[in-house]
């Protein structure tokens, strides 16, 4: 488990990094926190000619709030997000999700941009990005573009980012004041990737549901936005029957795969169970 030979670059600016990516014409990999890429290299499953390390680019690590949204630099560590007052106040769902990411040493190195660009469908951040209808900023040789969550994830470990692009920023709309939220997750062991995870946000007006947002982790090749389940709540309110119906609908909206930890049937079952739990908890903490 030693990687094959690769060249290593540690640029100081995004422009330098982009120039390096261009030089290798798609044969270089961007290194963020390294929590997924390093094992892939050691298993020789990834064999890039070069690594372009973003860890020496200070401008990529920040959390800023403006105009009703929060911008997070791609190299912001998960540990920083976990303890950020801005995140706690404006994106409490992201804070809660961060507690489910790996273990302390992993969160200390791991970054939000790395997790999203890696696009493991069992990871928490892609689900949060999807539930909150966030977007990412990609910079390439031809400039900058903004990609919506719904347009980003293609399949397992695959995004619409091109090999000469760098994900530089994650943008999430600030959650409405009083919004209820929850991230429910089931894994075989603490800190593991989700077998199923459900991110939920509920904005309520009494028993009426102004907005519901639901997204999955682990329920297929990409995070699944459970729009038809959200609509049940937005239409029928937040009563027990509506929650049950939304949870049942959720099981119909996913098409999970089987692996050695869980069958597709069991994952579908868990999707319903956790959707219900996430909604009950989110509604419980929602004000308004």
């Amino acid at each position: 488990m030693k990687p094959p030979k690769f060249e290593y670059h540690a640029p100081r600016t995004v422009d330098e990094a982009l120039a390096l990516l261009g030089r290798y014409g798609g044969d270089a990999k961007v290194l963020a926190g390294g929590q997924s890429l390093m094992p892939l290299l050691n298993f020789r499953l990834a064999r890039p000619a070069a690594l372009v390390d973003l860890n020496r680019i200070p401008s990529l690590a920040f959390i800023e709030e403006s105009g009703g949204r929060v911008r997070l630099g791609a190299m912001t560590r998960q540990r920083t997000i976990e303890f950020s007052p801005v995140v706690a106040q404006r994106l409490p769902l992201l804070k809660e999700a961060t507690r489910w990411v790996g273990h302390l040493p992993i969160r200390t190195r791991g970054t939000i941009g790395g997790s999203i660009a890696h696009a493991d469908p069992s990871a928490e951040y892609p689900a949060v990005l999807t539930a909150l209808e966030g977007e990412v900023v990609a910079r390439g040789a031809k400039g900058e573009r903004v990609i919506k969550a719904a347009d980003l994830f293609q399949t397992y470990l695959t995004t619409t980012l091109t090999p000469d692009e760098i994900l530089t920023e994650v943008r999430l709309p600030a959650m409405a004041a009083g919004a209820g939220y929850a991230l429910e997750e089931f894994s075989r062991r603490h800190g593991d990737f989700a077998i199923i995870g459900i991110a939920a946000v509920v904005v309520r007006d009494g028993q009426r549901c102004k907005t519901a947002r639901l997204a999955t982790a682990g329920a297929g090749p990409v995070p699944v936005r459970l729009r038809a389940a959200e609509e049940i709540l937005e239409r029928d309110g937040l009563g027990e029957a509506a929650i049950e119906a939304a949870a049942r609908k959720a099981t119909e909206l996913v098409d999970p795969d089987s692996d050695i930890h869980a069958s597709a049937d069991y994952r579908r079952h868990l999707t319903g169970v956790l959707t219900k739990r996430a909604l009950v908890r989110a509604i419980g903490v929602a004000r308004g």
Partner: peptide, 28 residues
């Protein structure tokens, strides 16, 4: 509760990493 070495019908080891061969951690 957790650990199992799994082979497929071709004799390939499916539980070939510690993500797949699940040993208890302090939390379990």
């Amino acid at each position: 509760l957790l650990e199992e070495i799994v082979y497929d019908e071709h004799g390939q080891l499916l539980s070939g990493t510690l993500m797949d061969y699940v040993v208890p951690s302090a939390c379990e």
